[in-house]
Simulated assay, not measured.
Amino acid sequence: MLKKVLLLTSILLLVSCGSKRSTLSGKKVRTKELVSKEQYRADLRKKEEHKQAKTTEYKRVTSNSDQSQVLDATSSVVVTTDLIQNYILTYKGIAQDNMVNHGIPASITLAQGVLESGSGQGTLSRNANNHFGIKCHKGWEGPSVRHTDDAPDECFRKYDSPAESYRDHSMFLVGRSRYSDLFTLPKDDYKGWARGLKKAGYATDPKYADKLISLIERYSLSDYDKEMMDIMGLQSGVYEDTYVETQPVIPQTKVTTSSKKSHVVKKGDTLYSISKKYNMTVSELQKMNKMSGTALSIGQILKIK
């Protein structure tokens, strides 16, 4: 009888232990399931937060804030204020030289350079040193590259250096009659120049002039015009040191210059640039030619030393 009681007790104990283990095992499975779901939700939250952070950063970078700006005339790029300022400091000297030699305000040249080249970060400026988006056009015999702008795979000019691009930009404006009205504007009338460029068809962007004006005012580029106007002896708002397009161009080949006694004024000449060429001062040129101002006409013959 005792043996039967012991056997029955043992069986009951085994059944009880098995039931507990089963219960514990079930709890463990459910706990793992709960942990897995919580982890999954946490991962989702992290992904969503990361996505929102990227969206916020994109909006910050691509906004016209003090930290960055979108430049999209020829190559759409996002650049920082520091990049724009460094670009201006790098090329302001070349722009000012071109203002003296070719009559184009330094502010306009710099603003176009910043916009068209994406402050030197655009595809054309990096691959072809083309800082002004100048296309090949009829008669271009220099190297070129293909770039999609208004149409796919358009032909753009390629240069050996940015300085060459800056010089060609000046010659491009000086040498085309559709831009001739610009050279009747005062050198400090950057708004007139910006609107004139758009009107003459330099760019198809309807906001092109506004973008140039905005860059000039935001980065005080007109200060570089004033510096050169002081050197050239020009008064603000007065048309003096530009060129009269209606007068005939007299080729230099018709004038004997071997003795260096005269100089024929050509498009792009200023009294300052002529004086530098012949190692004279502006006042000496004016006195020798009985000039009271600095206005020049294409084809005009000046006496020199």
Rank of each mutant, 00 (worst) to 15 (best):
H137N: 04
R195G: 11
G293V: 06
T246M: 02
V249K: 07
F183M: 10
Q85Y: 10
L173W: 01
K187M: 14
L115W: 03
M99F: 07
V145Y: 07
A95C: 01
V70W: 12
A73H: 04
D150Q: 13
T204F: 00
S258N: 07
D72T: 02
L115V: 06
Q52L: 13
D205A: 09
K32H: 08
K305H: 11
L89R: 13
V255N: 06
S144W: 09
V29W: 01
L271K: 10
S76H: 13
S283K: 15
S180Q: 12
L185M: 04
R146F: 12
L110K: 06
K51G: 07
R60I: 02
V77G: 10
N101G: 02
Q96L: 00
V282L: 00
M171T: 10
E49H: 02
L8R: 04
S170E: 01
T55W: 05
G139V: 05
H263Q: 01
E57W: 14
T184E: 15
L89D: 04
R176N: 10
L197E: 08
Y40D: 10
G201A: 11
D225E: 05
I231K: 15
V100H: 03
K277S: 13
V249G: 06
D43G: 12
L221C: 10
T90C: 02
Y272Q: 07
V249E: 13
Y179R: 09
K138H: 12
M1E: 06
M228E: 14
T242R: 14
Y40E: 15
L24E: 14
K191M: 14
K32L: 14
F172D: 00
A194S: 15
K211I: 08
D241C: 04
L6H: 08
I88K: 12
V238K: 15
V78K: 12
S170H: 00
V29G: 01
T256R: 14
A295I: 03
T56M: 07
E33I: 12
P206V: 03
E116R: 10
D97R: 13
N98A: 08
Q52E: 12
T184H: 12
Y278I: 00
S161L: 11
E154P: 14
Q235G: 09
Y179Q: 00
K135L: 00
